[in-house]
Design a protein around this nucleic acid. Structure first.
Length: 275
DNA sequence: AACCTCGGCAG
DNA sequence: CTGCCGAGGTT
């Protein structure tokens, strides 16, 4: 009998998936899919699974039957349509209206649900793990030389930091500083103050505060905040314009594609007459 | 009582 | 057609 059970990569560790082929009756040959939680509870449908997991997991892109996360359901050929005009995809209008979704791994730490037999064990969050692990002194140097590229691989003008920010330690250029601060903002929920001890400048290897980025202590002025708000506002506006242009371009493309399909139909009719 | 299967309905 | 779940049969 066809009965296989295996670890399911799309679900948290310990979950199993099983597919059972029906061997008699009108529906013989069809198959049923079941999932087993780490505690052994059996699930026979996506709603049942969703009910159990609550909001701790987004199943909207989870394909219950295959057990895989299915991205094509959300985004599919949006990018190909725009940048791969030579492929077979040409000529087919993209009727997908769903919102774009970030597909990169999240740099933010997400909560992890720990399920055990013991009811008092509930939810633990992961961030401590990243913070408590020992880190190499001046590890941020590995980040130097990283740049931002747009989809056409053109170098994007790098961001500028306020003049008040200055790096600390061996060979710290502005670019590394930016990376270091960005990393600090993502890996710690504590306030970012920079290196408060003045001794750091004399002997960074000894006096470095490893939970802070490698920059001198700084003050954020009201002026800095106001400027940043302005910047965010203008960037948002540019994003809005870009999105609008994208939507318009897509509508236009769809119109062209429809025209193309109609032409093809005419061609078909001509071909038919010749035969 | 828990588990296994397949029917049958809803979308 | 597929997904979901009820319910009868089996262990």
């Amino acid at each position: 009998m066809e009965r296989k059970r295996w670890e399911c990569s799309a679900l948290p560790n310990g979950w199993k998936r099983e597919e059972v082929t029906r061997k008699s009756g009108l529906s013989a040959g069809k198959s049923d899919v079941y999932y087993f939680s780490p505690t052994g509870k059996k699930f026979r449908s996506k709603p049942q699974l969703a009910r159990y997991l609550g909001n701790s997991m987004d199943l909207s892109s989870f394909d219950f039957r295959t057990g895989k996360m299915i991205f094509s359901k959300l985004n599919k050929n949006r990018q190909r349509l725009r940048y791969d005009q030579n492929s077979q995809n040409r000529g087919k209008p993209d009727l997908n209206t769903s919102l774009p979704v970030r597909q990169t791994a999240s740099i933010f730490k997400q909560p992890v649900t720990k399920v055990t037999n013991h009811p008092s064990n509930k939810v633990k969050t992961d961030p401590q793990k990243a913070v408590e692990q020992p880190r190499q002194l001046f590890w941020e140097r590995k980040l130097s030389g990283l740049n931002v590229y747009d989809i056409a691989e053109e170098l994007v003008k790098s961001m500028e930091l306020p003049k008040g920010l200055q790096g600390v330690g061996p060979g710290y250029a502005d670019k590394t500083l930016l990376s270091a601060i960005a990393s600090a903002l993502h890996t710690s929920s504590a306030p970012i103050t920079g290196q408060l001890s003045a001794a750091v400048e004399k002997n960074p290897g000894v006096w470095l505060n490893t939970s802070q980025p490698l920059c001198k202590a700084f003050m954020v002025t009201d002026e800095d905040i106001r400027k940043q708000e302005e910047l965010v506002f203008s960037v948002r506006k540019r994003l809005e314009e870009a999105l609008m242009a994208d939507v318009l371009a897509q509508i236009e493309e769809a119109a062209i594609d429809v025209a193309g399909l109609e032409e093809e139909e005419e061609d078909d009719e001509e071909d038919a007459e010749e035969v």
